[in-house]
């Protein structure tokens, strides 16, 4: 554990809880992509199956359980409790275009051909692109609520902080995993455009709207 990893995890946790609390408090999931949330649920499920097979630390296990429950809680709020507020007309990204290629890639580029390893690799590849339906939705509607912008910023920062963590681990532990590093870089690049808008608009008190 290092400071980059800890900040990354806390940023990730903040993002997930922020989204859950926002939907609960406003009784609405307007502007949130249900498709991205479905992809994140698949990501957490396929990655954290190792809760049953390997123990790392209490910290890791608790975080995994929180991520999984928050993710399914968000799906419950979006597709059941506050379903009428779900803006499905603007959530039109075809997620099969992400699910299938990520699955194929996880069979092609993987460390070991075991079920858990392929599922873990799949979760890494799918996570890298899981935000695309959400970003597509923001670009279609041309705007995002401020709280949604904070959610996206925290979620994007998490993987950027993980990149610093991997650099740190490379120098301190001589440890390198190119699968997560390249996927993590792709994931972070996808947020760059949004980061720019967030810094130039939202942090100056303006609403995030596209020209």
């Amino acid at each position: 554990m290092n400071i980059f990893r800890l900040c990354g995890d806390l940023s990730h946790l903040l993002a997930i809880l922020l989204l859950l609390v926002k939907i609960w408090k406003t009784r609405s999931c307007a502007g949130i992509s249900g498709k991205s949330q479905i992809l994140f649920a698949i990501v957490y499920t396929t990655r954290y199956l190792d809760l049953f097979t390997s123990f790392v630390s209490i910290y890791n296990s608790v975080m995994k359980i929180v991520f999984l429950s928050a993710s399914y809680g968000t799906l419950y709020l979006m597709f059941y409790k506050f379903k009428p507020t779900y803006d499905h007309n603007h959530d039109s990204f075809r997620i099969l275009y992400l699910i299938v290629p990520a699955l194929v890639l996880s069979f092609v580029i993987v460390h070991a051909y075991t079920l858990m390893e392929v599922l873990w690799t799949y979760s890494i590849y799918l996570e890298a692109v899981a935000i695309m339906p959400q970003l597509f939705m923001v670009s279609r509607t041309g705007e995002a609520e401020t709280i949604t912008s904070h959610y996206l910023f925290a979620l994007g920062s998490y993987r950027a902080l993980y990149i610093l963590n991997w650099i740190y681990r490379y120098y301190t532990e001589d440890f390198l995993d190119l699968i997560v590093i390249i996927a993590g870089i792709v994931q972070t690049i996808l947020y760059c455009d949004f980061f720019y808008l967030y810094i130039t608009k939202v942090l100056k008190g303006k609403r995030l709207s596209l020209p």
Binding site: R5, D9, H12, H111, N165, F175, D177
Partner: peptide, 10 residues
């Protein structure tokens, strides 16, 4: 191995 070590992350 490489793959077993990265699994200590989230």
């Amino acid at each position: 191995s490489y793959s077993s070590k990265i699994h200590d992350e989230l």
